[in-house]
Write a protein that binds this DNA or RNA. Structure first.
Lengths: 136, 136
DNA sequence: GTACGTGCAAAGGTTTTGCATTACA
DNA sequence: TGTAATGCAAAACCTTTGCACGTAC
């Protein structure tokens, strides 16, 4: 098992204890946390942590391509340490975000691919997740 | 040509002059404006308009399914009066949002459609629009 | 040693809310 | 006439920024 220190060593980022704690929290995390989710959890073990540090660390990781900033939740940004190609489902009731595997998406008319430079594509699904569906 | 008054008459919304002006601005508008865009334009002809009125009108229209709230722009919400099925492209430089026709999207593993209740799906593309691509 | 990160507080931007007044239906 | 919308101001959030201090490299 690779430690986050080894994993993020050569990015040109200083690995402070705060950052290592944030990276530990994010590593393999499938919950798509908000900045505040990260802050609340990491500050349990690191009480001096500041929310501003969480934001700047997320910004630095995003610039290095190590985290995705998701805009699927209308209320706040959510973060995803899994940067491989996949899509997302958000439950409109509990706001859980769940990974959806990406199949071969061919949904872009060829006439458009000539004029545009497409850098990312992302499918966003919304509805009721299995838990909320059962309660309804 | 149908006036917006005829178009929105039977929604149970009071058609005040402010709302009619907002509806006129939105009708057929392909620019995916923000609340402030709407406010700035409509208040030219309606100087007493309040930004709060724009927000509450957009909220009422959204509840009636007459406008979509887009979260594709990380900076603010954008609104779309075209509620038929289509997708969006956002230019990461100029923030223009452009409609992309939806093809038959079959990108959801069947195992998942059984457990989830999918209400909406939306493909979000980002990159450089034709104008910005030419400048680069 | 130096450039970069931290933490605090304050500011910025977007969106919502409370409330008295106004006006549609 | 009664219910709902308006407009103003203030508040509520989320996120960013300035700055003095501290620390990884």
């Amino acid at each position: 098992m690779m430690t986050v220190i080894a994993k993020y060593r050569n990015l040109g980022l200083k690995l402070t204890p705060q950052r290592i704690a944030i990276l530990d929290y994010l590593d393999g995390n499938k919950r798509h946390p908000s900045a505040e989710d990260i802050y609340l959890d990491v500050s349990k073990k690191f009480p001096t942590l500041s929310l501003a540090t969480v934001y700047t660390t997320l910004g630095a990781l995003r610039e290095k391509g190590k985290v995705l900033e998701l805009t699927i939740d209308p209320d706040k940004k959510r973060y995803d340490p899994e940067t491989g190609k996949h899509n997302h489902f958000i439950c409109i009731l509990c706001k859980r975000i769940i990974d959806i595997p990406a199949t071969n998406l061919i949904d872009f008319p060829e006439a458009i691919t000539q004029d545009y430079c497409i850098i990312t594509s992302h499918v966003e699904y919304s509805g009721h997740c299995p838990e909320c569906k059962n309660i309804l």
